[in-house]
Amino acid sequence: MTISNAHPAICWQDLPNGIVIQESIEERLAPWWPKVFGYHMLSIGPLSQQIEKPQLPIGKEFSLAPKSLVSVVGDYHHLPIQSSSIDAIVSSFLLEFDSDPYQLLRESDRVLIAGGYLFIIGFNPLSPVFTGKLFPAYQTKVPWCGHFFRPSRVKDWLGLLGYQVLADERLLYHHLMTEVHVGSIWQHALEAWLPSSGSVYIIVARKLESPLTPIQEKQKVRQPNWATAPTAGRNTHAKVDN
């Protein structure tokens, strides 16, 4: 199986329980939008564009994908956008279906300004949703045909790029192969006992203006001043009295 640069889901209905997933994400991200200030927001992928962003103090929102129905048609690995010109980026379920997910993050980092926000949404392999990968009937379907990355690995990538993770949240404790009933006792129990096992993760990160640990200049090592040890004076020739 070759994972392409194009997302197999064009709208949320293309995902199993897609509308429930969308509404859960919108509810969890709602408190974040008023905190994002700036002139330009970039929604990468068709699903990111369709997320409601109420009270977003951003002048203009652009959407980008390899196909139409977006503001800009382009490649995720080579964004046709000037460097350090975007104040916030939203990426929804893209890493799972990309041939080079780290390059996607690097390109997002290139166009994001220092202090800008990066919102990453993905499927958590350490959750009930991974169950679908065990059944042949689901292995070729979305989202199980993609490669699920652990949230910890995504955070490691962000750390290498110089980001501070502000939030790492989970939602929807369900395998998604059947209809999701929000508020079920089983989901509440799983959330209480295994809070990190939510099927969907949301990572909110901010690009740092400087590294967390500044590199200090190496101090010159003071060389010891080795001196010849003093020796007691003595005559080399003894005087013999007659």
Results as ranks from 00 to 15, higher is better:
137 A>F: 11
220 K>Y: 06
199 S>G: 12
134 L>C: 13
149 F>M: 03
163 Y>A: 03
198 G>R: 07
46 P>T: 14
24 S>A: 13
31 P>I: 11
141 K>M: 10
99 S>V: 10
77 H>Y: 15
113 I>V: 15
132 G>K: 09
49 Q>H: 12
73 V>M: 14
191 E>C: 11
122 G>D: 02
64 L>D: 10
96 E>M: 04
217 E>S: 03
88 A>Y: 09
47 L>R: 05
123 F>T: 01
73 V>W: 10
208 L>K: 04
69 L>W: 08
57 P>G: 06
106 R>A: 02
234 R>V: 08
19 I>K: 04
135 F>Y: 13
11 C>Q: 14
54 P>Q: 07
141 K>D: 14
36 V>C: 06
153 R>S: 14
52 E>Q: 13
21 I>M: 06
209 E>I: 08
57 P>W: 09
8 P>S: 03
129 V>F: 02
3 I>N: 12
47 L>P: 12
143 P>D: 02
140 T>P: 05
132 G>M: 03
211 P>G: 01
28 R>P: 06
26 E>L: 06
172 L>I: 15
134 L>N: 13
65 A>H: 09
38 G>Q: 06
236 T>Y: 13
55 Q>R: 15
81 I>N: 01
60 K>M: 11
226 W>L: 04
128 P>R: 00
8 P>N: 04
230 P>Y: 07
128 P>I: 01
77 H>W: 10
1 M>W: 13
42 L>S: 03
71 S>Q: 07
147 H>Q: 15
87 D>W: 07
32 W>Y: 13
11 C>E: 15
235 N>E: 11
189 A>F: 14
133 K>R: 14
162 G>S: 06
223 Q>M: 06
43 S>G: 12
40 H>N: 10
